[in-house]
Design a protein around this nucleic acid. Structure first.
Lengths: 212, 212
DNA sequence: TATTGATTACTGACCAGTCAGTCAGTATTA
DNA sequence: TAATACTGACTGACTGGTCAGTAATCAATA
């Protein structure tokens, strides 16, 4: 009986080629969102994903590529959902706008994906092409989809015409602030997301709708 | 005549004990805001301040302390200005609120200090005590000062009572978004700050004021 | 079913480069 | 001449990326 200290027979990982990329992208989201890009060690990402650092390089070419893929992976599906809702021909502009905002709060702000905006803000200056991707492929598209609904509401006499340039200030800013709050300040002062969402929607629609 | 390559007689820096800290804090703001905390090299801060790295350590004990001091230095004066305006006994609530917002846009959003919010968002998770300082000493105080004015407006019958919980959504969010935009996306799509500010104020006061 | 050999997902020690922090020495000022 | 603001080469710790080696898996064969 050997009593060599810690023979341990370190358990090797089984092979799961298909699941790895998704697991790595989830681990990356968690670690990058805490430490930022430069502050994140790939060893930590690997540990959280339950693999070794070398394995990351089997699926991604570099730290930078991993970061880019992670952003795409955690935000594009939500954007497409918002665009789909906007394409519904039926329903009042108010209802569609409410549904789009609901997706923003339920599928972004109150999930893990809420730290993506924070990461873009943090790293956008150092990775201009990332900021540009996010601007062109996320902000502009979300913006246009929702602006379309506002225009439709104005055309139908449902909304006031003067509201056409309130987009950023009234529609997106409060949601962005909520995402940031959740990520940065929630531990000191938890945000009641349901109430916040309600207030945001009330405020917006009160401003948009013609007097009834 | 020596023709030694580059005798150069590198000009040594003169001694200016009093000006150094301010110069270092300005250089730090510029470099940290581009690269973030972990991504910033103190050699770059030193170079931008026109000194050598060692000199930084004559005035600040560590990179972390420099970062903290920088945040305080570039945001506390503006906060105090906002609080001063809130303490004016005279004037309508609308006028005071307008003036406070004006300070936020003119002294924060459109100056170098606009990247402080970005830095808090970026580094708040890694430096919880920094996030807490910013929450307790900046956000709460600004929030309370402006909330006080809204309450005064409601009491005077100038504002609608229901608006008391619109603070974050209506008052601060659009300004935060503007600061972020200036720092991250302005190069792709410049923000017309004057128009944005005007829209923000109109939107807010339209929501706050009782029907006239 | 058992054995064998080929394939490849995965590992982790290592290397080369980077940077916060130090301190002995230099130049400036009083 | 004394005091000290300032310098910059140096160190030690750390990390992105590499790659030779290991073992899990599978197909072919007995």
């Amino acid at each position: 009986m050997t009593n060599k200290s810690q023979p341990v027979k370190k358990r090797r990982n089984v092979r799961r080629k298909d699941e790895r990329p998704g697991e790595i992208l989830r681990a990356a989201l968690e670690v990058f969102s805490i430490n930022g890009y430069a502050g994140t060690r790939l060893d930590d990402v690997a540990e959280r994903a339950g693999i070794s650092k070398g394995t990351i390089y089997l699926y991604f070419n570099s730290k930078e590529e991993l970061f880019h893929e992670m952003v795409r992976h955690w935000i594009l599906p939500q954007l497409e959902k918002i665009e789909q809702i906007g394409k519904q021909p039926a329903g009042s502009a108010e209802d569609i706008l409410r549904e789009q905002l609901k997706v923003i709060y339920e599928d972004v702000v109150s999930t893990n994906a809420s730290c993506i905006p924070k990461l873009i803000i943090s790293e956008g200056t150092r990775f201009p092409e990332l900021a540009e991707f996010y601007y062109q492929e996320i902000i502009i598209r979300a913006h246009e989809s929702m602006h379309e609904i506002v225009k439709r509401g104005v055309a139908a006499g449902e909304f006031r015409p003067c509201a056409l340039n309130w987009q950023l200030q009234a529609i997106l800013s409060p949601a962005l602030t909520a995402a940031i709050w959740k990520t940065v300040f929630d531990r000191f002062s938890p945000l009641d997301l349901k109430a916040y969402f309600q207030t945001h929607v009330d405020l917006l629609l009160h401003g948009l709708k013609v007097k009834s």
